[in-house]
Design a protein around this nucleic acid. Structure first.
Lengths: 159, 159
DNA sequence: CTAATCCCTGTAGCGACTAGAGGTTCAAGC
DNA sequence: GCTTGAACCTCTAGTCGCTACAGGGATTAG
């Protein structure tokens, strides 16, 4: 469905770096950078020396971009790719990886949700008010945010 | 409750940069950096020229760290601090700020939740399996992730 | 064939820190 | 009062993950 119907998924006409970038949502510079640091294999070249890619690279790069977007470091992405490149190996490493990241993702999620609620509240209720009645600042100064949000104890001034 | 009971919240004995850092969860280097770029006011100094801080700075810095942690850029933090520094001004700017960031935070939240689910599934179900049965790689390669997750269409190789 | 567009390498810059060198200040113990 | 060791100072340079030129060559539409 994402594929070109004329070919059975795997091969298609090779594309240039610009198209690769467009299809996967990043820039040509970034593609070259990823090649340089080894996240992408050295591209095959045209007669004149320009990089040529196929559909698999589009998927690989899309994967990279999504993973980066989720907050994984380049090194974490490298690990994930390593696993993706060896689908025959046992799941243990992926499992360890998942365990390692789950807690972090969850806490990030919670805090982000708290922020979202606050932003939402502000958008719907703040019209005409004053800054001092906006709780966002309070929310962000609060130490307890990382544990839970109890009833708000004073503290307004930040300097 | 976070405060020292001997003083009514505002003033306390001045603390050094190390304590400030510990209390707010960042490093002395970062504190100096924030001062340099103007997120923190120039600190008052001891006789010998060392920085001295009070409770307000702890709060301000905690605020900065949380905001950064939520993914706000330094410039966004600067705006927020500007607002916090002028609580008497009308809410419009905070409101605009909130509107501007809400959409982004929400989409980030959704994608993070998708990832969380996948990690969770992996941790609970993957024991003993093989990488090829792990959907995380599929999830992260999928274009449609940003819209919704339909039934999974093939595609394993990423290179 | 030519013009427009794309692509090449290499280097430098950015944001947001972080680390180190080399020297000064502070505070606790004697 | 003196010593000692941790904490602090400034300044510069390095890191990560890109991003933006500059100065050229390749490709493709007309």
């Amino acid at each position: 469905m994402t594929e070109d119907a004329t070919h059975p998924t795997t091969a298609g006409p090779p594309i240039g770096i610009g198209d690769l970038a467009r299809h996967s949502g990043c820039k040509p510079e970034t593609v070259r950078y990823y090649e340089r640091i080894g996240l992408l294999p050295d591209a095959t070249r045209s007669e004149g020396g320009q990089r040529r890619y196929d559909e698999r690279t589009v998927r690989r790069l899309t994967f990279i971009r999504h993973a980066r977007d989720f907050g994984f470091s380049i090194e974490a992405v490298r690990e994930l790719l390593e696993m993706a490149d060896h689908p025959e190996m046992p799941c243990d490493e992926v499992d360890a990886f998942a365990k390692h990241h789950l807690a972090e993702v969850e806490s990030r999620l919670q805090r982000l949700a708290a922020l979202r609620d606050e932003l939402k509240r502000m958008v719907t209720q703040c019209a005409g008010g004053r800054v001092e009645s906006c709780r966002i600042i309070e929310v962000l100064s609060d130490h307890r945010l990382y544990h839970q949000r109890g009833e708000h104890g004073g503290s307004n001034a930040l300097r």
